[in-house]
Each structure stands twice: as C-alpha cells, then as structure tokens.
C-alpha cells in the first residue's frame, strides 16, 4: 500500500494529506524520498557521519513541525533543501564562531583577480578530488556550489534560500568557483592539465 503511494503521490499531495490526517504513511513517503539526500548534503557540509546523522534527524523534526508553513510557492524539494542548507551553515558557524565568514571575506580580494570558470571543470572532475576540494572551501561557497550543481537550483531559488539578491548570488557563485579552482590548483598542481 505504502509502496503504491510512494510511486503515485506527489510531494505536495503527501504534505497536504499528512497535515490533514497526520497519517504516518504520508510521512513515510516524504522520508523515503528525501532522507538519504538530506543526509548526503549534511555529510558534504559537516564532514562527519555522526554529525550528519544528528543533523538529518533534527532537520526532519524541523520539517514536520513546520510543514503547515510550506506554502507551495516553491517546489517541496527546494523548501526542504533550504532548511537543510541553512541548518548546516548555522551549525558550522556556531561551531567555528563565524570563522567561515572571516575566511570568506579574507579570500574575496584574491578571487576577484581571476576570471570565469567553465562549469565543465567542476562537473567532470573526479569524485574523490571533488570531495577533497569541497572539504577545503568555506561552508557558504560549498553550499552554493551544491545547490547549483547538485540540486540544479536556479539563481532565483538560491537567492530565496540565502536571502540575498540575484546579482549577489551570481557574484557568490563566480567567487565560489574561483576559490574552488584555486584550491584545486594548490592541491593538484602537477595534474591540473590531465582533468
């Protein structure tokens, strides 16, 4: 029964039905669809499996408690990913007492000197290298790159999630890519041309 529902019902329908009936099967549909993805994103940002597991749990409780606030203006996936990214960014910032913001500000000047980078450079990279480089860049830049290249979010959607203007987001993406390339170059200088 639940399997049939999983295949046929949309996210938005599952949300509506869950709010109306509080039936566990509708929660199961949403959990089955998104739990591993949320965990994956938490793991990418928090870099620790235990922390990622705790974060996934807290994010799901947050989602369920705020489900009635989902207005349907954006896709459900965008809404839950926005909760996920903001939760992870807040967790990192609390832990580091805003060091990530300082790192970000300090590296901006250097980055401005470099120019545009093709998406192919990031998207066709070896996964292991991608993982290593993502671990080295500030949390906000990492989140922006994941939203753009992993979740295929539009500039408008990202700007909504991070509460910034679309032009600011375009600039942030550009800087994040530049930082990514610089760090990649630092780590894999000798092999850069072979990618």
């Amino acid at each position: 029964m639940t399997r049939n529902i999983t295949l046929t019902i949309s996210d938005e329908e599952a949300v509506t039905e869950y709010i109306a009936t509080q039936n566990q099967k509708y929660f199961d549909v949403l959990y089955t669809r998104y739990s591993s993805k949320i965990f994956g994103k938490c793991l990418s940002i928090l870099k620790d499996e235990e922390k990622a597991e705790d974060a996934t749990q807290e994010i799901f409780v947050k989602i369920l408690l705020n489900l009635s606030k989902f207005s349907g203006k954006s896709k459900f996936s965008t809404w839950i990913y926005s909760i996920t990214y903001n939760f992870c960014i807040d967790t990192i910032r609390k832990g580091k007492k805003d060091k990530s913001i300082l790192v970000e500000d300090m590296t901006n000047e250097h980055d401005m000197a470099e120019d545009g980078i093709e998406d192919r450079f990031l998207m066709e990279m070896n996964v292991k290298r991608l993982k290593v480089v993502l671990e080295k860049i500030p949390v906000t830049d990492k989140a922006i790159l994941l939203m753009k290249y992993q979740d295929d979010m539009s500039i408008k959607e990202i700007s909504g999630i991070l509460s910034k203007s679309e032009s600011a987001i375009k600039m942030k993406i550009k800087r994040a890519k530049q930082k990514f390339k610089r760090i990649h170059k630092e780590i894999y200088t000798e092999n850069l041309n072979s990618i």
Binding site: G40, L43, L122, M123, L130, L145, Q150
Partner: peptide, 11 residues
C-alpha cells in the same frame, strides 16, 4: 556530473 555522483556516494 561529479556532484550528482558525490550525492549518490554520500547517500
């Protein structure tokens, strides 16, 4: 898309 591959791996 290596980002998608990374997502699968983490999941």
């Amino acid at each position: 898309n290596s980002f998608k591959e990374l997502e699968k791996e983490n999941s």
